[in-house]
Write a protein that binds this DNA or RNA. Sequence first.
DNA 1: GTTAATTTTAATCAAATGATTAAATAAGTT
DNA 2: AACTTATTTAATCATTTGATTAAAATTAAC
Lengths: 218, 218
Amino acid sequence: MTAKKQNNGSTEAQIKEAARRVFTSKGFAATRTRDIAEESGVNLALINYYFRSKENLYNIIMVEQVQLFLHSVSGILNDPHTTLFTKLELAIDHYIDMLIDNPGLPIFVMNEVNNNPEKLVERVGFSNHNAGQLYIAKQWAEMTFSGEIQPIHPIHLISNVVSLTVFPFIAAPLLRNRSGLSVTEYNELMKQRKALIPHWISTILTTPGPDTQNNKQS
Amino acid sequence: MTAKKQNNGSTEAQIKEAARRVFTSKGFAATRTRDIAEESGVNLALINYYFRSKENLYNIIMVEQVQLFLHSVSGILNDPHTTLFTKLELAIDHYIDMLIDNPGLPIFVMNEVNNNPEKLVERVGFSNHNAGQLYIAKQWAEMTFSGEIQPIHPIHLISNVVSLTVFPFIAAPLLRNRSGLSVTEYNELMKQRKALIPHWISTILTTPGPDTQNNKQS
DNA sequence: GTTAATTTTAATCAAATGATTAAATAAGTT
DNA sequence: AACTTATTTAATCATTTGATTAAAATTAAC
């Protein structure tokens, strides 16, 4: 809570960085503008002077954080020169590094996703980040057609990759508490997952599904 | 937001049920005691009359919800008469049904886990719900020793099962929006996962790990 | 160096909010 | 019915909180 990190930029940047820290850790409703003022070591009135309102400041931070969370791997997934599995490896590697650096990011974004889905869609440019138009989607379709990988509903595939990568960070405080692992030890396990998750996904994609016909594409 | 569900119990029960709905959907900080009064169709002062304070009421709700989320499958996982894979199937089946009925539960609990881990551990009886002492843990150890399943760090295994089961509900509003699926269609996919997740976990557990030695037990 | 514009500060405002109170109503007891 | 206890209500309180203001301090312009 005591920071006043000498954010060697302008006052505006100091406020914004402090706001990012406070908003992402406590959420909009629990954050007081006075918290941000204190965290940035700046007079309360300057928050309104530079950002007009708490809500406006929050929206700026929120959009940036959602972009960071959702769009940071689109380059990797859209590269025409790598295989599907290489893309998965690179994207998961990048994601786990980012999550170790920003452990509060997923829960922040997921709260926004759950509480204000409309606002989120409205304020964040989703247009060009349509999963179905990425190069990896084309590769997946071709590999499915050729029989290289088993058919699977794309929502299941995406859910699996994102779940296995992101959820352990959301549940980290609980899993650490139950297992007695330190932050460092837990993060080491997360780094192991950089290799494990692609392997597990590959295993899932190359092993025929269960007897029921549920895993057919619709 | 307009409910006043004629909760045919006492005023106290009406307030509690309304509080559960409001707290789980908006969280503690964003909830006004007046919201709860309106949602339960009851005079504002009765909240303090029956529950002393907003915080006290929240703690009651929170503990109940966390218990529901964390302890609802311990019976299944501790049954000495079922196999490990049967336990997985039953637990995941039960969980997915519960999550379809309570889609806001995971994000509520995960927020508490992330914001007040100490309070949560203090107020929720964790003592008897130590994963390592459940019957399923014994079975897992035996099957690993006998070579029936591949060695894997228990945190990875638990993470995988819970991630694959729970996260798609946390990300549901986003995934529905991106895919254009309705709530019903999306829930159908979730029901498919009752069979798919056990199958995927089984596949993971019976396929040798990647070349790196990361998946050895420590 | 003087003036104008920008930034910072302390004080203050109005609305929101959790909680309390005293009176009114309902329920229970004899 | 008479009396006591429990519940409900409208009004009110004291804080908190987002925002504003006017003056002071600093920086920029000429």
